[in-house]
Amino acid sequence: MANRTDALSRERIVATAVQMLDATGEEGLTFRALSAQLKTGAGAIYWHVANKSELLDAATDAVLAGATTVAEAAPEAEIRALALGLFDAIDVHPWLAGQLAQGPWKSEALRIFERLGQRVQALGVPAPAQFTSATALMIFIVGAAAQNAANASNAAKIRAAQPDASRTAMLAVESAAWEGLDPGDYPFLHDIAGQLREHDDREQFLAGVDLILAGIAALRPQA
C-alpha cells in the first residue's frame, strides 16, 4: 500500500496551492496551511517542492500555461489575445500580478516578455525601438490587469459590508461625485464622469492595448 507521501504528487500540491492563493493570497499560503489542506506532513510536501518560492513559480506556471496559449494569427491579433488572456487570468487569480510585477528576470514574466517581443519583431518594428515597444506592452498589460484585480478586490470588500452595492451602483455613486466637482478645478473629470459610469473594464483594457499598438505601427518604416 502506498504511503501518504507516495499518494501526493507535485501536480496535486500545486493545484491545491493555486486554490489557497485564490482564497487567501500569497500571505495565506504557508507550508503549514498547505499541509493541513492536503492532510499530510510538511516533509511530504518538501519531497516534491523545495520551498515557497519554487511553489509560487510552479503555481504561476500552472495558471499561465492555459491563459497565455493563443491561436496563430497576425501579430497584432496574437498580442491582443495574449493581453486578454493575462487580463482574465489576473482577474481570476489576483496574486498573479505580484508574481509578474517582480521584474522580467522572473522566469514566467521573461517568457511573456519574449513572446511579446517576438510579435513586436514580426510587426517590422526597427531594432532600436523593439525593446521600448515590448516593454510598453508588458508594463501596460501587467499594470492595468493588476489595477483591475485590485479594484475588484476593493469592490468585493464593499459588497461584503453592503450586499446591495453592485458594480453598477458603485460606479454610479463615483460618477455622480465626479460630476459634482467644480468644473473650473476638475474640467477633465467633470467631462468624463459619464464614461466612468458606463465603461467596461475589459473593453477599456483592450482599447489601451490598441493605443499602444497604434503607436508601435507608427514606428514601422513607411513603404
Rank of each mutant, 00 (worst) to 15 (best):
W105E: 15
K52V: 04
I192G: 04
A23K: 13
A73F: 06
A145K: 02
N3G: 15
R80V: 05
R115N: 13
G180C: 06
V209D: 00
T60V: 09
H93M: 00
L34E: 11
E198F: 07
Q118I: 01
A172C: 01
N51C: 03
Q162G: 00
A150D: 14
T24W: 07
V70C: 11
L137V: 07
L206F: 02
G103L: 03
W178Y: 14
D185A: 13
H190Q: 06
S53F: 02
A17E: 00
D164Q: 14
H48G: 06
L100A: 04
L86G: 01
V125R: 07
A62V: 05
E11K: 12
T60D: 06
I158E: 11
M1S: 13
S9F: 00
R4A: 09
L38V: 01
R111P: 01
A136C: 07
A156D: 12
W47N: 13
H48N: 11
A7D: 12
P187Y: 11
A218M: 08
H93G: 00
K157N: 09
A127N: 05
L8Q: 07
R115G: 13
V63E: 11
I112S: 00
G143Q: 10
A36R: 15
L29Y: 08
V92F: 01
D22I: 06
I158R: 11
A129T: 04
E114Y: 07
L56A: 01
W47M: 06
L110D: 15
V142I: 14
L84C: 02
A59Y: 11
A136G: 08
D210I: 06
G194L: 09
E27K: 12
L137D: 02
Q118V: 02
T68M: 12
A42N: 09
L123G: 05
R111D: 14
D185R: 15
M20N: 01
D182H: 01
A156V: 02
Q147P: 02
A97P: 05
A217W: 05
G208H: 10
Q121I: 08
G103D: 05
A144D: 12
D185C: 08
F188L: 14
E114L: 08
W105Q: 15
D61Y: 05
G103A: 04
L64Q: 09
I45L: 14
V92A: 14
T68C: 12
V173Y: 05
E179H: 12
E203T: 04
A15Q: 15
T40A: 08
I192A: 02
N51Y: 03
K39Q: 14
A207F: 10
A214S: 11
D88R: 15
K106I: 03
A144R: 14
F31C: 08
K52R: 15
V70H: 09
A176H: 07
A17T: 00
K106F: 04
E114G: 08
L116D: 07
I216V: 09
H190N: 08
D164T: 11
E179P: 01
R167G: 04
A101D: 12
H93S: 01
Y46I: 03
L86H: 01
V18D: 00
G66V: 12
D191M: 10
V125F: 07
K106E: 09
E203N: 07
M1L: 10
W95R: 00
A81M: 05
A150H: 14
E108P: 09
A144L: 06
I139V: 15
D57F: 00
S133P: 09
T68G: 03
